[in-house]
Write a protein that binds this DNA or RNA. Sequence first.
DNA 1: GCCGCGACTGATAGCGCTAACTTTCAATAT
DNA 2: ATATTGAAAGTTAGCGCTATCAGTCGCGGC
Lengths: 347, 347
Amino acid sequence: MTTINDVAERAGVSPKTVSRVLNDHDSVSARTRDRVRAAMKDLDYQPNAVARSLRARGSGSVGVLMGDPSGGYHTRVHHALLLACVETGRHLSVDLSEGPIPGWDDRIRAFVEDSGIREMILLPPECDFGPMKALMRELDVRCVLISPTTPDPQFPAFAMDDRAAAREVVEHLFSLGHTRIGHIAGHPDHVASTLRRNGFFEAYAAAGLPRPGPELIVQGEFTFKTGLEAARRLLELDEPPTAIFAANDDMAAATCMEAQRRGLRIPDDLSVVGFDDAPIAGVIWPSLTTIRQPFEQMALRALQTLGAWSVNEGAGKTNTPFLARHSLVVRESTGPVRSGAPPRRKT
Amino acid sequence: MTTINDVAERAGVSPKTVSRVLNDHDSVSARTRDRVRAAMKDLDYQPNAVARSLRARGSGSVGVLMGDPSGGYHTRVHHALLLACVETGRHLSVDLSEGPIPGWDDRIRAFVEDSGIREMILLPPECDFGPMKALMRELDVRCVLISPTTPDPQFPAFAMDDRAAAREVVEHLFSLGHTRIGHIAGHPDHVASTLRRNGFFEAYAAAGLPRPGPELIVQGEFTFKTGLEAARRLLELDEPPTAIFAANDDMAAATCMEAQRRGLRIPDDLSVVGFDDAPIAGVIWPSLTTIRQPFEQMALRALQTLGAWSVNEGAGKTNTPFLARHSLVVRESTGPVRSGAPPRRKT
DNA sequence: GCCGCGACTGATAGCGCTAACTTTCAATAT
DNA sequence: ATATTGAAAGTTAGCGCTATCAGTCGCGGC
């Protein structure tokens, strides 16, 4: 292993000067700098990040806490974070978060100290957990929040605009001629559910159409099973909707399955839209029209914010999260409303 | 921040003695040890892992490379690894692996050196990538392989017994009275596909039943879409199978959807079995009977092997991977064969 | 011609921890 | 009682890097 001393010796300068070159510090004459650079290249020198961390009291890694990945949400954020880390030249340290079980704080403390973490990304649900945020402040770890339920003036936050996205979904369906649209709402405990439902209504209001009746709004819980039941209720209405907007992809997939079980063809007899662009959306048949959450953008902005922290201490901390730009992904599950013959029904 | 010196001073001993207590080294008298322990507790002392890493030339973190998570495979391994890390008191550093693009080796090198990684888990497809393994040896990083296609005598490997698992699936179906079973094979490039199909045949041989004809074996590619097409071909046979064993859960889910579209009820008219216990398996309706891959066990054994490396240098390196114990998860998609009326068909 | 100034560089001392070596000292052997 | 142990503790010297402070050197102003 070549050290800074080897480089110094070869370049005929002191180690400190090499260090200066490494960090673009102070004033180093062009000639010396070139000589040092050459020596580094000759010796194939790689600065030892661990030694640096010791001095600097903190590695260049960002920490992130991951919970149960089955929802797919964490997985996608995780991937986006990895991409963002590549972009910003960092590395990612991951620890398991198992909720506020006894001793959770000691584990986090150990995680932060062992990994030399000075920056952390907090995802749901940790980003809304007060004691966690307090611990971060105590450990003097810079934090950003991703999709918090309630923003915190102490930390910058990044989220997407659920309301606007839902509105776009409905406008897309309007443009295909649908006006009788059912909505399968998400779990009542999640703000996202409310925002998406509000967006749904808002689109109607903006288009000057009458607000859909309560029979067209069915409560789900983000799961496939509740989606199945909700779809059943919508499709058994005397006047069933020609399109269904589910608050996530699992429920949308369930809707497709239930509809197909009843002999309806998608999108000819029924259009279906999901939300999230979860893996299932691209994989089932017909593939789902859905909203792609802008994970990549949120992750990149989050890391950039952390990087710029020292420069403008406290900038970006605000009550309103930065809203990243989502996109509507139109796939096979939506099509023009079939005028004329009403959808075949089959009990 | 309290250091080892603070503890030493408080306990009235030298720093080295504190270090000895910390690492259970050498001989320290019980009285001194207790005194040091007390001092550590009093001062709420946490050893600085970064400083340790500097001396020890390597942190306590394990590295893992993650690719595209959409298949769900990486996600589940990742979660299992986190659990195993908690168990073995380690931390996980993750980097993105984007295949052999130019400069991949420099990135890996930087990852290993920046994070002070001396241990690494190689997942598919990296675990079969020769240059990657060569780089690991060059960097003197201890590696274990998870589910390699071809084992490598240089590194311990952990996998599951695909053949035996497939056989169990078929035996489960036998026990429900099914004898005419269709198989949707996986992507021909994956060994797992071959192993699972071999297990399928083996069960017939072991039961003394005639080997199923070629019309009952349909090639898929592990995707939902190919599963749909394969299921269609099986269900349109003149004498359709009463059960279908798909080589993964996506294709099994597709089979369910296709069957339901044709008016077949699951499991009354058709039993379906998947493989992997992917998230989709528990989420769709009916939930899938499937094989649970023993990720947790593989991950734990992998980390334990890394931990025991120094003790018995080279132990565990063998040509045959350690086979972790899978399990058959019986859910709602399998049931006894309906004797009497043949399944209703609907074109 | 000497002083002082600024640009550049080097010696030194750690960051917190541990390995190798040395010292201390009580218990035993002679 | 003295030599001989060896367990128990301390001393010293770094791991690789960087901050502090103290130089060195050339150059213009008085």
